[in-house]
Each structure stands twice: as C-alpha cells, then as structure tokens.
Simulated assay, not measured.
Amino acid sequence: MKNAFIKVINENRKIRIIYNDLERIIEPYYLFSFYNFKYKSLYVAGFCHQRKEQRIFKLSRISSRKQLNEKWDLSPYPITDLDLSSFENGNIEFLKWPSDKGEELLSLGFKLKDMESKRDYPKQIKLSKMNKPGTCRSPLEERVLTELNLQKEIVELEMEPYKISYSFNNEIRTYIPDILVYYIDGTKKIIEIKLSGEIVDPQNQVKFERAKEFAHQNGMTFLIRGVDTEASNYRQTGEFGWNDNTRSLPIREFEPMEFLMLGQSNLKNEPPSFAKKKSKNIFVILLFALAILIILKYLFF
C-alpha cells in the first residue's frame, strides 16, 4: 500500500480508493507516518474530488486502490494549509512529498525520511535558488543542496558548473564538481559533495588539487561538504535503494587535503575516521618499541 502511494505521488497521478466502504478519487500529495508511544500509522494527504476539499486518509482504512492515468488537476497545496491539529508535529515523519515542497517541510521542522531508490537517482531537481534544473545523483547530494538552498547568504545554486581537466595515471581526464554557490557578497564557491572516507583516495586528491587551482585562478574557493563516515556506510544497493547510515550525521565542511603519491602526506583537518586509524598505528608502533626495550633489559642487564 505504501509503495503504491509513493509511486502515484512520484508520477503526479490520481488514484481511486475505497475508504470506509466509500469510493473516492484523490490527488495524493503527501505521505506521512504518525507515531506515539502506543502505535504508528501511515496517512496520505491530498485533494478529494468527492468532497472538493483537502483531506487526510488513514492507509489502514483503505480497502482497495487503483492508480488512474489522469494527472493532477491542481497544484499541491502548502502543508501549512492542511489541518494537522490532531497530530503532534514532532511525531510526524514525511515519507513522500511533491518535489518542490521539501524545502518548506524542512523549514517547518518536519522530519523527512529518505525513501529514494535506484530508480530515483540520478534525477532532475529544481530548488528555489536554481535558475535551471540540475542532476542530483544521490540522497546525500539532495540533502546538501536542500541545506544550502535554505541559507540566507546564498543567492544562487548551479549544479555541475565546470569541466576541469586533470591528469591521472598518465591519462587526461575530466572532473565535474557538484555545485557552484553564489553568495550575496559576490563571492563564489565550488563545492564537491563527498564522504570523509573518500577524500584520501589518490584519484580524488588529484581532482581536488586541480579544482583548488582552477578556483584560485578564477577568483573562487574550492571546498568539500559531506558527512564523516566510510564509503561502506553509504552506497547504492541495486533495486533495494541505498544503504545509508548517514542520515543522523551532521553535514560538515572538509578542507581539501594534499596527497603525496610517495607514501607521505601533508594532511590538513584530517577526517576523524582517518585520524583515528593513524593514531592507532602510532600506538601499536610505540607498544612494539616498548616490548623490545623490555626484552633487551632482561637480556643484557
């Protein structure tokens, strides 16, 4: 039942339902869950053509449904127009919503559950500070974009703005950074969206160094935004969507790091996960050296 409503909301289609033994044709706009200490229930909110008004329907009371080929007649209404007085906002989590309403829901403090699957990414996205749609390639990209779109000091977002040439393994390749951000004070920043565990990859380091150079030559700044975790916690898993254990992690800014291919590194602002591994290696070496000293003491003294 839940997946059927996700599908019709994605496709902006009407659906015929039998609700409390009565037939209704609705335009579903929002799918959300409400929970308290006793139970959790799913609801769909939209326009009911029989009642000629906005209504909320509990999914457990829908005995049958059939998707129609007809598209929505109306534009989705703002969530503030919906009477949610019988629900507590803190216990509402939205599972699906119109593509242009995510920003509004976040600004009102609602929880948004990332229900996107393989079929949804890459996908076209158009936020209020984007002059044209762009290609969003992962849930993390969409999360970062939505956060940037809410910042008052940002006036415009442009996705995949440049093609930057770089050399890796004796081949000339092309790197396309994720976002160009225009600020109200006239400054511009090129932003790459990455996990901290991906930053130290040798090819990524070459790309980032070239992007930093390109940004400097053009009066801009290059930086990385993302979450601090390993790539294994965030990957696409076929038809079953994304293995995403990062939703609860805060988005932070990483300083691009210089990576020397000869095994030495000059790292600035190491991600905690990388720094932790480095500290562990140093600790093991110190323990080994201490053990050698103890053995020598008993052998020669």
Rank of each mutant, 00 (worst) to 15 (best):
S248N: 15
Y234C: 07
N245T: 04
F222V: 09
N245E: 14
N218D: 01
Q236C: 06
E239D: 12
W242S: 02
E258G: 00
P256R: 03
T221P: 00
V227K: 14
H216K: 15
R252K: 15
G226F: 05
L260H: 12
L262H: 07
M220G: 09
Q264F: 10
G219R: 09
A231F: 00
E239N: 09
L223M: 15
A215T: 11
M220Y: 05
G241T: 03
F254Y: 10
D228T: 06
R247F: 05
M220F: 05
G219Y: 11
E255L: 06
P256N: 06
D228M: 05
L223I: 06
E230T: 11
P250Q: 10
I251G: 02
G238P: 08
Q217R: 15
N245Y: 14
D244M: 01
R225Y: 13
G263E: 05
L262D: 14
E255A: 12
V227D: 03
F240V: 07
G238D: 09
T237S: 02
W242I: 07
D228Y: 01
L262Y: 01
M257S: 14
P250V: 08
G226H: 08
I251K: 07
M257P: 05
F222W: 05
N245D: 14
S232I: 08
E255N: 10
L262K: 09
T237A: 11
L249W: 08
A215Y: 03
S265P: 05
N218A: 07
T237W: 08
S232Q: 13
I251L: 15
T237H: 06
